[in-house]
């Protein structure tokens, strides 16, 4: 098993499918984040991340995503969303609770539950989980066309989203954009 993370370790997860166009933006932000943290100094991480950070990429949701969060007090998830309420490339900082709680009472997909339902399941089972994962979303146009390129507006959002993650890492009460999340992502 992977080593138990320390209390002060924040898990940053780039979520999405790297071969599904804009859906891969979470992975690209994770990549940029690793580069900036490794780089440090000028042009590197200007916020001097105060605590240990673990960066990972994932293409799953629901139970499997919840299981990946076990053992972390803090987690930041970066993902593409399609809300239709903002131009492509718009970056938002949210708490998971701010995302529409869809599927909490019902099955959320043909295969899995929503992350919110999975967290609700995990907590009474005494799984150590983040109180409320923070989320950085990038507005995108999500389709079902296979490809490893992002559209220009989403590509341009990578540094913005990466900075948002770094600022969240440096802040115990991470800033949260209010509302405006629309009702349904892909």
């Amino acid at each position: 098993m992977r080593a138990a993370p320390g209390d002060d370790t924040t898990l940053v997860l780039g979520l999405g499918n790297p071969i599904l166009g804009d859906d891969g933006v979470g992975w690209r932000v994770a990549e940029e984040l690793e580069a900036r943290i490794a780089g440090g100094g000028p042009g590197g991480d200007p916020h001097g991340t105060p605590r240990r950070v673990e960066v990972d990429r994932l293409s799953v949701g629901g139970l499997r995503l919840m299981e990946r969060l076990i053992g972390y007090r803090r987690a930041i998830i970066v993902d593409a969303v399609e809300t239709g309420t903002a131009p492509p490339g718009t970056v938002r900082r949210l708490r998971l609770d701010d995302l529409p709680v869809v599927g909490l009472d019902r099955l959320a997909s043909a295969h899995d539950s929503s992350l919110a339902a999975a967290l609700t399941l995990g907590r009474p089972l005494r799984a150590p989980l983040p109180e409320t994962p923070w989320v950085v979303t990038v507005e995108a146009e999500l389709g079902i066309e296979v490809g490893d390129r992002l559209t220009p507006a989403v590509e341009a959002a990578i540094p913005v989203a990466t900075t948002a993650v770094l600022e969240m890492l440096a802040d115990d009460e991470a800033p949260v954009d209010a509302g405006g999340t629309g009702s349904c992502t892909n």
């Binding site: 979520l15 969303v81 998971l96 959320a108 997909s109 929503s114 349904c184 892909n186």
Partner: peptide, 10 residues
């Protein structure tokens, strides 16, 4: 493709 996204509904 619809199974991995946030918040995770289908």
């Amino acid at each position: 493709c619809a199974t991995h996204s946030l918040p995770g509904q289908m």
